[in-house]
Design a protein around this nucleic acid. Structure first.
Lengths: 232, 232
DNA sequence: TGTACATCAGTGAACGCGCGTTCACTGATGTAC
DNA sequence: TGTACATCAGTGAACGCGCGTTCACTGATGTAC
């Protein structure tokens, strides 16, 4: 271990990246169920047992891909928001821009999207490492709403009494400072946004919605409205 | 072929049902990817090749399960609606009752739910037979909104000009007679509802939403509002 | 700077496994006369 | 009603396949003195 990374260490990070790249490619081609260590090794010109120097098991490789996918969509969301902020867009436009970025990322990475927002891979349970990356997109939305709240305030109707304790708990847990009714609306909107994207990606909009760009833009704007972001 | 079904024919439908039942059980235990003809046959005390008398291939068995799942959730939705109608509930309550039925069915049949609303099974493409059963739940919602429209009318803000042609097309295709803005809101709400259920089922609500019954009830009520169904 | 030893990436063979599908067959059920 | 033939469910063996993981090994890179 020196200041200049040795050849060994450099090779290690490069090969690790190559394995993940190839695995991602196979994921895109065949889906998560068909992702196999042997196929990845074959494509890389290695022998399958060599991969065990890098990932202790197939599941660990899958975990790495999941973490990368969360980071990738998280970065896309954060970037879209940063651009909107730089352009001086109001909160509502920031919300819509991030929603659009999520959808675009999903359309560009359908299998990675399915990996994180589709049915769980059977027999696989996500380890704790995935929790932080998994919340980047959600946190971006929270940031937008928080800014709007700090600015002009958000007016939403009060919650029914039954939901108040849960909304208060959620607020305390991950959205400190927001009005509870906004937290509740935010979580619902986030799930609903993914519902829209999943329907499009998983084929439920076949024979139903054709002009999907326009449809999504409208739905995203209505979700912005639902969390109390004022219309232009 | 007589009026009384012969032993052969009766045996055939019984064995077919037994195969599907066992396949469903394995689906619930292991997920779609692990569903194998051999395992089903083993469990049934048959030899694997015997299944080919009933289903020409594994994919055909999967298709049968998918059709059954759509029919099962469709029946649950229709039944919930019929009960609400029988109880004299207004449209908004009918909507909420059906939404609740969808969620309950999903919680009770998580793997069948994943089969139809989760990531598509890789390498499998749904044949046309699935289209009609797949639309039963959606049609139930359309029926509710149509009744509300025929009754007291539904007031939703007008659509942006960009979405009008698509909304008109959707209306003509599968929701004849509804105002286009209602059709658009309905399709979005349906996707969003599935987003809520999927988030809960697929683990995205872990560490986020705890009191899920209450949360869902509130979200479903807001979706009713979003399609223009008046509050109580 | 040079040498002896430790670390570690990659090899190749092997393990045991389960899968979908085909095929020639047997024997029971159904049908036509 | 009885017989000859056709239909069809289920058998058992076999095909070729790909998988995850282990293990003893070789040889190159790194480290301590």
């Amino acid at each position: 271990m020196s200041t200049v990374r040795g050849a060994r260490e450099r090779a290690r990070t490069e090969v690790t990246a190559a394995i993940k790249d190839e695995a991602r490619r196979m994921l895109a081609a065949e889906g998560a169920a068909k992702l196999s260590l042997r196929a990845v090794a074959r494509e890389l010109g290695m022998v399958s047992s060599a991969l065990y120097r890098y990932f202790p098991s197939r599941d660990d490789l899958l975990t790495a891909l999941i973490v990368d996918a969360y980071d990738s969509i998280g970065a896309a969301a954060e970037e879209a928001d940063a651009e909107a902020v730089a352009a001086g867009s109001p909160s509502r436009e920031r919300w819509i821009a991030v929603a659009r970025a999520v959808r675009v990322w999903a359309l560009e990475h359908p299998h990675e999207y399915a990996l994180i927002y589709g049915s769980p891979v059977p027999g696989y349970s996500a380890p704790v490492d995935t929790v932080a990356p998994a919340s980047r997109v959600g946190n971006t939305f929270i940031g937008i709403v928080r800014a709007a709240h700090a600015g002009h305030g958000l007016a939403l109707p009060p919650l029914p009494a039954t939901l108040r304790p849960e909304a208060a708990r959620m607020t305390a847990d991950f959205a400190e400072g927001l009005p509870p009714e906004v937290t509740a609306a935010l979580v619902a909107a986030w799930a609903q946004l993914i519902g829209l994207v999943s329907f499009e990606l998983f084929g439920q909009f076949n024979r139903v919605v054709e002009d999907r760009d326009t449809f999504f833009a409208h739905a995203a704007a209505q979700l912005a409205h639902a969390v109390g972001l004022p219309a232009a």
